[in-house]
């Protein structure tokens, strides 16, 4: 929970066209609609994500007290990923195919049968498998329309941007160096100057 303790890896975003006036209840409602939900069936694998309380990843009821801290709105993205160990699956699949061959007296197993056996195996194994769980804290500064994602991962960043847009209807724009230049009071001089430069060669003359 980097928002509350430990080392922080942070990526900045600008909330494009963020509202000047915000109704907290609407934000909470939106968050609630896109809250993390357990998949309808435990017998399915894959990724499942949604918002959770920043204090506890199993809490998906958002309260004003646990979400808003003055200008900050704090919540987390939870991403569950349920996969079966590939080697275990292959070993069990081979055994089942051998059993099917022995039972039917056939030498070969068609790909259609293999798929059916595999699906049956997955139906049996997935409910026994717990997902890997990742949680990424988010802090939205409602007064400055900036958002901090406590992760440096591009993959996580894209997930947050996508779900944030679906949840609130605002784009998150990553703030990079060129955006910093564009935001400076001297942007009028610096941006055209940036157009005219390339990577400088820093090697001393003797080594060039």
């Amino acid at each position: 929970m980097p928002l509350l303790s430990g080392a922080m890896g942070a990526r900045r975003f600008l909330v494009q066209n963020g509202p000047a006036s915000i109704r907290h209840e609407l934000l909470l409602d939106s968050l609630q609609e896109a809250a993390f939900r357990e998949p309808p069936s435990a017998a399915r694998g894959g990724e499942n994500m949604g918002w959770v309380s920043h204090g506890n990843l199993v809490v998906t009821e958002f309260t004003h007290e646990d979400t808003f801290y003055n200008q900050y709105m704090c919540f987390s993205l939870r991403v569950d990923n349920k996969r079966l160990p590939a080697k275990l699956l292959k070993g069990l699949l081979d055994l089942r195919i051998d059993a099917w061959k022995a039972e039917t007296g056939r030498e070969r197993c068609s790909s259609q049968i293999k798929t059916e056996i595999r699906e049956q195996l997955e139906l049996e194994l997935y409910p026994k498998q717990l997902p890997s769980v990742q949680v990424y804290d988010i802090c939205w500064d409602l007064s400055s329309h900036r958002l901090w994602l406590f992760s440096n991962s591009d993959r996580v960043s894209e997930k947050v941007r996508e779900l944030f847009y679906r949840t609130f209807g605002y784009f998150l724009l990553p703030v990079g160096l060129v955006e910093l230049v564009a935001g400076h009071e001297r942007a009028g001089d610096w941006l055209p100057a940036l157009d005219g430069i390339g990577h400088a060669d820093y090697r001393p003359e003797v080594s060039r």
């Binding site: 935001g183 400076h184 009071e185």
Partner: peptide, 26 residues
């Protein structure tokens, strides 16, 4: 239902200005 008026601009650091129209779109 307005909980907070977010229209007040935060105190700006020196050399910084709004760039809402200078950043890339989504």
């Amino acid at each position: 239902l307005v909980d907070q008026d977010m229209s007040a601009e935060p105190a700006a650091d020196p050399g910084r200005r709004p760039i809402a129209n200078a950043v890339p779109s989504g």
